[in-house]
Design a protein around this nucleic acid. Structure first.
Length: 202
DNA sequence: AACTTAATCAACCGCAGCTAT
DNA sequence: GATAGCTGCGGTTGATTAAGT
């Protein structure tokens, strides 16, 4: 069980919240040398004050070298639409068909972008009574994936070119941890992390 | 410039299923 | 077969950033 930061035995202390760069490096370094899996013991063996769950999530969603970050392409959007229509909210299953994408990313994409679009189309199409059946039954099955894609991509400004060059915001680690003026220095990329890790292991 | 609202995404939580004992 | 521990999944939340007023 997780111990809430109550005073007392520091051995049971469990860190929560955003990961620091040091933690990331420790995790990358450990997995590079020992492999992943058996997350609870991995967390302990690596000396991380994190739950195995947290380590697994961090690795799978962010630190893995093959994780693809940045904008979801039009093809990927279409695949997501189609697979979601087929399987519903089976994010991990859908993610398996999108190499480098994580279930969390797809889930977020769906919830923030697609559902927003769906809501919008609900309000607009429900004015003209025709759309009401769709609206009543949506999510997923009724709505043709292609319809959704078409409408979605034409009604939103998101055309797949935002968030290029995703980098690692220091502020998400600890907003107060760094007070550097140059914005460029507040970021490090996954490439940076991995090169640091490689240096470290030499 | 200050404030508010909306959008985004990383991370946590709870649960279900699987495996080992 | 029962139980415990672990893993993976999906839902949700909270922090941060961006956009609007």
């Amino acid at each position: 069980m997780e111990k809430i930061g109550s005073s007392g035995s520091e051995e049971a202390e469990v860190r929560k919240g955003p990961w620091t760069m040091e933690e990331d490096l420790i995790l990358i370094n450990y997995i590079t040398h020992h492999g992943d899996g058996v997350w609870n013991s991995l967390a302990k063996a690596a000396g991380l004050k994190r739950t195995g769950k947290s380590c697994r999530l961090r690795w799978l969603n962010y630190l893995r070298p093959d994780v693809r970050r940045g904008n979801i392409t039009a093809e990927e959007q279409l695949i997501i639409m189609e697979l979601h229509a087929k399987w519903g909210n089976r994010w991990s299953k859908i993610a398996k068909h999108l190499p480098g994408r994580t279930d969390n990313e797809i889930k977020n994409f769906w919830r923030t972008r697609v559902q927003k679009y769906i809501k919008q189309s609900e309000t607009t199409s429900s004015v003209g009574s025709q759309g009401s059946e769709i609206n009543d039954q949506y999510p997923s099955h009724v709505f043709s994936a292609r319809d959704a894609m078409e409408a979605y991509s034409t009604t939103t400004s998101y055309q797949g070119d935002m968030e290029l060059n995703h980098s690692y915001p220091m502020s998400s680690v600890s907003p107060m941890s760094l007070t550097v003026d140059q914005p460029g220095e507040n970021y490090w990329t996954m490439d940076d992390l991995w090169s640091m890790q490689l240096l470290d292991s030499n």
